[in-house]
Write a protein that binds this DNA or RNA. Structure first.
Lengths: 239, 239
DNA sequence: TGGGATTTGTTCGTATGTATT
DNA sequence: GAATACATACGAACAAATCCC
């Protein structure tokens, strides 16, 4: 289990897609990074045809921006987009919690407990990259237990986009490290309480959003405001 | 306003994508219909590259099946898939109802009333094709009022897939002609009752599903003849 | 403002795999 | 079961648009 979040359908342009997606959600490729088809193809040893297909899939996922006749770039979500994505994510994940609670069994309990243990281990070891990745995988794994492939696809997509969003608006890492909240969700599920599980999930996602985009509006500020901050410096420089 | 449901992002491989999508949701291209890149490219006067991009997008939307080294075909949803799609659709559209109820204003009321009147007119005129198309557009239009672009995209996708599903399991047409149910939703929204609107929507989608699942399938017609009928629409969409 | 280097959009040829007689 | 026809996967090449100096 070393593959990327969306590795389920690795068929079409698979390797390039998977690697790029993982690199983007890992924040190894920050928003705005140019993704020229030539260079990427050279890196992977394939031609532009393959890269194009991968980039188009990533664009459909909202992780890459492709304007016509322009070099593709890693998407830079706006604050509005961020809100929209989290809104949909909360809706989807509430449904996941309800469905999984209905289908609950001992196997689910064991798998989730093991996953949370892994999260804890990564956190204790100070491996922030793994911590973030595992936090995302928790949600995808849970969605998988709903037995609904379309729900898995959508949850995978919104979770990926949320990782990207946190890399724009959130503090560097450790924003998603709410292992305790994952435990709370597990407990509600184990108790067979669908409503409480859905509420716990909703609360958790809301907290992720608050931690990520709640406080400051770090990115996409007003140009005028920025220049105003720099004017005093200019005055000094002139002197 | 003659464009296809998913015409919002007509940028990449736009014309071919739009026409094929419309033809599929209109059930003019039944499930299982072969979609060879050559023939389609010839019809549209473009090369396989363009057709490929369009087919890939349609495959991502779940409307087309593409296995490696095999001719693409119009997707033939299984009963399980159908259930999964409707499950997600209910979840998404409940959220749409809630959000639209919150943002309700007189403009929304007028636009929805006009749309329902159009539906009624098509139904009275016996235009079953227009009736089905307008029924789908009602949901997409409503989603647009949520102000959440991602929600619009997802609703558009599930609604399209539901049209395809109905063409497999439902009676030929008129399965979705529940204009009265659309009116009930509008009334709940106009009353400012978000919970009732969500419930009405949930009930409506459940009824669409119930009416849809239970029939048989049809035969395979000629692609060229069908696409020729759709080319004029493409010209209009481009203008 | 202009021109050159980059990079995309597209087509078409070849290799490879599938379906069919 | 083998051979043939057919259709896709992939890559190379050309023209046009964009970006940068």
């Amino acid at each position: 289990m070393q593959r990327g979040i969306g590795a389920s359908s690795a068929g079409r342009g698979g390797r390039v897609y998977t690697v790029l997606q993982q690199a983007i959600v890992d924040q190894a490729l920050p928003p705005g990074t140019r993704l020229p088809e030539d260079s990427i193809g050279a890196q992977f040893g394939v031609s532009r045809t393959i890269v194009r297909a991968a980039l188009q899939r990533l664009a459909a996922d909202g992780l890459v921006e492709m304007k016509v006749k322009r070099t593709a770039t890693v998407a830079r979500p706006s604050l509005e987009e961020a809100r929209a994505v989290f809104e949909v994510r909360r809706c989807l994940e509430r449904e996941v919690a309800r469905l999984v609670a209905e289908k609950w069994n001992d196997g689910f309990a064991a798998r989730l407990a093991a996953h949370i243990a892994e999260e804890q281990q990564a956190a204790d070891g100070g491996d922030s990259k793994a911590t973030v990745r595992l936090a995302a995988e928790f949600h995808v794994k849970l969605a998988g237990m709903s037995g609904n492939p379309l729900l898995v696809r959508y949850v995978t997509e919104v979770v990926s986009r949320c990782s990207l969003i946190l890399s724009v608006f959130g503090r560097p890492h450790q924003s998603e490290c709410a292992i305790g909240e994952h435990r709370t969700i597990l407990e509600a599920l184990a108790a067979g309480d669908a409503a409480r599980a859905a509420a716990a999930m909703d609360h958790h996602v809301a907290l992720v959003e608050r931690r990520g985009v709640g406080g400051e509006t770090a990115a996409e500020p007003d140009i005028g405001e920025i220049l105003a901050r720099y004017l005093p410096l200019a005055a000094v420089a002139d002197a």
